[in-house]
Nucleic acid binder design. Structure first.
Length: 266
DNA sequence: ATGACGGTGTGGCACCGA
């Protein structure tokens, strides 16, 4: 089973690139399910027909202008079941979470796709919201883990967990995505037993999942690793690869994020 | 310290993202 997460920064703009990327997956090991962030579409505008025509079943949860998430499952694996939109019990006007069960029987996976709040800057109201949101996510994921031992939490976490996830740790010290509070929240998720799949493997130094549109940041490889795939303890031994695919960032009019992919043994 | 780039909205710029 291969899973992916991608912040597309407007699905209206990026749908052709998404379809190209999906169609370009290796036939012997295609992506089976993926989550998207920042679709920026109200639910009535979600391109489910185009995705269905390309062989993908979708569940989606969006709003106008901002945020918006989706869970796509390759035809043949059926449809995501027990779909949950946003964090149960956490009153939130922003569409940031979609979860569903993918596959059936012993092979079923609980997949949670999340678009963590940006937080703007420390000490702001948005930062406080980010902290509250992460508290709620943590507590809900804890329960989900108990119900679903085979669980994957992936998405745009908007946190660079360590200095090696930052192109210039000195310049970014204490800045949004790198504050001790955000990093502590990330560690709290790991304390649930979740494992950062990317760090299960030796990786190229200066591996990022996001590059600023400005300042030729991609060409200079100045970025952050803020998109993550966390797997439950039961799945961790089954992870055989985790990579960032920089290729879509080279497109014309790319998203500022690259997809992250994880491969799980059956 | 600021803004750079890109997306959205009902726009002539502001707001937001990271």
């Amino acid at each position: 089973m291969k899973l992916a997460t991608w912040n597309v920064n407007s699905l209206a703009v990026r749908l052709p690139q998404l379809l190209d990327w999906l169609a370009g997956q290796p036939p012997e090991a295609p992506v089976d399910a993926l989550v998207l962030q920042e679709t920026k579409l109200t639910d009535d505008k979600f391109p489910h027909a185009e995705l269905a025509a390309a062989g993908w079943r979708a569940a989606w949860f969006g709003q106008k202008t901002y945020n918006g998430v989706a869970l796509l499952v390759r035809e043949g694996l059926g449809e995501a079941t027990d779909v949950v939109r946003n964090i149960p019990g956490f009153d939130d006007g922003q569409a940031r979470v979609i979860a569903g069960t993918v596959g059936a029987g012993d092979a079923a996976l609980r997949v949670i796709g999340a678009y963590f709040p940006n937080g703007q800057e420390p000490d702001s109201e948005k930062f406080a919201y980010k902290m509250r949101w992460q508290d709620a996510l943590h507590d809900w994921v804890q329960g989900e883990l108990a119900r679903h031992p085979r669980l994957v939490l992936m998405g745009d976490f908007n946190v660079a967990p360590e200095d090696r996830d930052v192109h210039d740790p000195v310049a970014w010290a204490g800045q949004i995505h790198c504050t001790p509070e955000e990093r502590a929240q990330f560690q709290r998720l790991l304390a649930l037993g979740l494992v950062d799949a990317f760090r299960l493997f030796e990786q190229p130094p200066k591996s990022w999942s996001w590059w600023d549109y400005r300042n030729l940041a991609f060409r200079k490889n100045q970025g952050l690793r803020i998109d993550h795939i966390l797997v439950s303890p039961a799945l961790a031994p089954r992870v055989t690869a985790c990579t960032i695919d920089k290729q879509p960032r080279r497109n014309e009019r790319p998203s500022d994020h690259a997809p992250v992919i994880v491969q799980l043994a059956d």
